[in-house]
Write a protein that binds this DNA or RNA. Structure first.
Length: 271
DNA sequence: ATGATTTCCTGTAGGC
DNA sequence: TGCCTACAGGAAATCA
């Protein structure tokens, strides 16, 4: 599922390949909640892509006429740059042909938890989940994280998944960071000490950085913009490794459901 | 307000 | 092989 490193990987490709390109058309292939702001569809045509921005797991493509395309890939969403004549994969919801003549941006999403929206500036700024995103993990420091955790009984795993607190972590990287930090995912947030918060922020940052360098994790649906796979799934230490030996101590990895999410951890290494 | 639970959706995996 | 059920999860909605 696309989390911060996967979206960042897509962002970097978009920066290289789409800045300065003119949008030739905006072709919705469905008419439901997945595509929003379609009444502005005609305004998008002929606009030029000026900037691309990531916040958390959101991707915003800013256009020359002040409109923005806001994308979220949910859990099975994929953003692709394909030749116009390439066969359409099923569950492709959006096609955006670009002015280099042969390529188009496509968004597909089998499980349909993502979306794409055409938004005016004020609409983007007031878009709830975008506007209220929490701290950027790369700007986070121990005292800030510790302060955010204080006074909460909520499991630290659930805290890490709350985009209003920290933006960009999903199930994979929350579990991987907690493993590296030696913190049990079910620990009440308020019990995390300053020293533990220090380890946690450091490992959040490191695991995200390493995954970006590897092009993200291709577990089920995720691919890069050009269709190639990320490589970080080979570096996962706990995610989806229930019953397998811990890389540190050889005890078996456990899986608990925490906050409705499958959570993988080593009962020996994480406290 | 906090925090836990349910909902949306479909491909995949497992059981029989 | 085929049918059925359970499960996966990001974020919004709902409920206690």
């Amino acid at each position: 599922m696309p989390e911060l490193p996967e979206v960042e990987t897509i962002l970097r490709s978009l920066l290289k390949l789409t800045i300065g390109r003119r949008i030739l058309d905006f072709i919705p292939l469905r008419d439901d909640y997945i595509l929003r702001g379609l009444d502005r569809r005609a305004e998008v045509v002929n606009a030029v892509i000026q900037a691309v921005e990531r916040r958390g797991k959101f991707l915003a493509i800013h256009l020359s006429n002040g409109l923005s395309l806001l994308h979220h890939l949910g859990m099975s969403g994929r953003l692709m740059l394909r030749l116009k004549e390439d066969p359409l994969e099923n569950h492709t919801h959006l096609r955006v042909p670009l002015d280099d003549g042969s390529y188009e941006l496509r968004q597909r999403d089998p499980r349909r938890f993502g979306f794409a929206a055409i938004l005016a500036k004020d609409e983007l700024e007031s878009f709830e989940s975008w506007a209220r995103l929490g701290a950027d993990p790369f700007r986070l420091r121990a005292p800030r994280l510790h302060a955010l955790l204080q006074g909460r009984k909520q499991a630290v795993k659930s805290f890490l998944l709350d985009q209003r607190r920290i933006a960009g972590l999903g199930n994979i990287y929350a579990d991987e960071a907690l493993f590296r930090a030696g913190i049990h995912p079910a620990r009440p947030s308020g019990q995390i000490t300053l020293a533990e918060a220090g380890r946690l922020f450091k490992h959040i940052r490191n695991v995200l950085r390493e995954s970006i360098a590897a092009g993200g994790s291709s577990t089920n649906d995720y691919q890069r913009l050009d269709g190639t796979l990320g490589l970080f799934q080979h570096k996962h230490r706990v995610y989806r490794r229930e019953g397998l030996p811990c890389f540190k101590c050889r005890n078996r990895i456990e899986r608990w459901v925490i906050g409705g999410r499958g959570s993988y951890f080593c009962p020996h290494c994480q406290h």
